[in-house]
C-alpha cells in the first residue's frame, strides 16, 4: 500500500506533536497532517526495520542513503528484512518524515518503531558495535561469533 493510500484511509491520530515543536513558534511553519503522521507511524511499527531513503537499496540516489544500505549489508541484514521508502517518489513523505522524527535529513533508520538515526549515527554505531547489538537484539541479523569479533 502506498503512503498516499495509507494516509487517505487512516482515521485517528495516535500521537500529538511533540511539545518542543509547539514551544518554538518559528517551528510551526508547517504541520504534518494527522493522516500522514498516522501513515508513517503505522509503517515504522508494521515492519521491524524501516529505511526512509533517496532511491532504493538496489539503486540509491544519494551517498548518505547508499552508505546506510551498505552498512546494513555488511551487518548481514537480509534484503527482505529491509522495508525501504523512496522519499524522492513522494514529496509529502519527504517533508513529512522530517517532521515526524523532528530530524532534518534523510536517510532515516527505524528499528521496531524507534528512530535510530541518520547516516552519521548509523555509521558511528556501526563502528562502535552498538548497531550489531541492536540488530541482533531485534532478530534482524545474527550476532557474530565471539572469535570473529
Amino acid at each position: 500500500m502506498s503512503f498516499r493510500t495509507a494516509a487517505r484511509i487512516a482515521l485517528a491520530p495516535r500521537r500529538t506533536l511533540a511539545s518542543t515543536f509547539l514551544s518554538n513558534p518559528s517551528l510551526c511553519r508547517r504541520f504534518l497532517s494527522t493522516e500522514h503522521r498516522k501513515a508513517i507511524d503505522d509503517a515504522v511499527h508494521q515492519h521491524p526495520l524501516v529505511l526512509f531513503m533517496k532511491g532504493t537499496p538496489d539503486q540509491p540516489q544519494c551517498g548518505f542513503s547508499r552508505a546506510v544500505c551498505q552498512i546494513l549489508d555488511v551487518q548481514g541484514v537480509p534484503q527482505d528484512k529491509i522495508k525501504s521508502f523512496n522519499v524522492l517518489e513522494d514529496e509529502d513523505l519527504r517533508t513529512g518524515i522530517k517532521e515526524y522524527s523532528e530530524w532534518p535529513t534523510v536517510p532515516q533508520l527505524y528499528v521496531n518503531g524507534e528512530f535510530v538515526g541518520g547516516c552519521d549515527i548509523v555509521l558511528s554505531m556501526h563502528q562502535n558495535g552498538e548497531l550489531e547489538e541492536l540488530l541482533a537484539k531485534n532478530g534482524l541479523a545474527a550476532p557474530l561469533p565471539e572469535q570473529a569479533k
Binding site: E102, W103, F115, V116
Partner: peptide
C-alpha cells in the same frame, strides 16, 4: 549521540 545530534540540529 542522538541527543547531541538533535541539539546541533
Amino acid at each position: 549521540t542522538i541527543k547531541r545530534h538533535r541539539l546541533v540540529n
